[in-house]
Design a binder for these strands. Sequence first.
DNA 1: CAGTGGATCGTCT
DNA 2: GACGATCCACTGG
Length: 192
Amino acid sequence: MIPELLDKSFFLREDVVNQARELLGCVLFTTVDGEFTSGIITETEAYAGINDRASHAYGGRRTARTETMFCAGGLAYVYLCYGMYHLFNVVTGPEGMPNAVLIRAISPLNGTETMMRRRKRNILKGLTDGPGKLTIALGISHLYNKVPLDGSMIGITRHYCPAAEAITTTPRIGIDYAGEDALLPYRFLLQL
DNA sequence: CAGTGGATCGTCT
DNA sequence: GACGATCCACTGG
């Protein structure tokens, strides 16, 4: 059966934590300069809008950068982290509700040669197991910010539904500044 | 292995 | 002017 592209009905939902969990096992793909690359999503984090101290949109902060998060779900939110890495998020929720899911890791599927070239690595191990690594491998840059996840440049397809036992839940990474919200169980890992 | 520090720049104060 | 939703090389055990 042909993989089914996730559509508006998924992205517009308001339960971002469940959406983060459900993205595990889906396939994220890009086509850049005719080169198709993809991987199975194995790690995600939910960022829950204006009430989440870890979110860029905490307190309803609406700036040129966070504007993307306030858009209706179904597009990419890409921003520069630590001055050198582009991080990729899936915007979810209806317009005005700035929820997003950070994709933190994928397992290489298609276009591994291309991904290794972009990463300047010649082994699969460690190729896409970090939020900054996978964007390099998939060719995702700032140009992907606000781009629809409709499969033309970038898209997400259902691949398989993981067993509950294959999923681990933990607090999020690198958000110590978020106070009590740093303890929320909003990070999901999939054991393939 | 664990721990450490450098790279690097857009964004917001 | 300070600070990241990070990665990697390098150190020492």
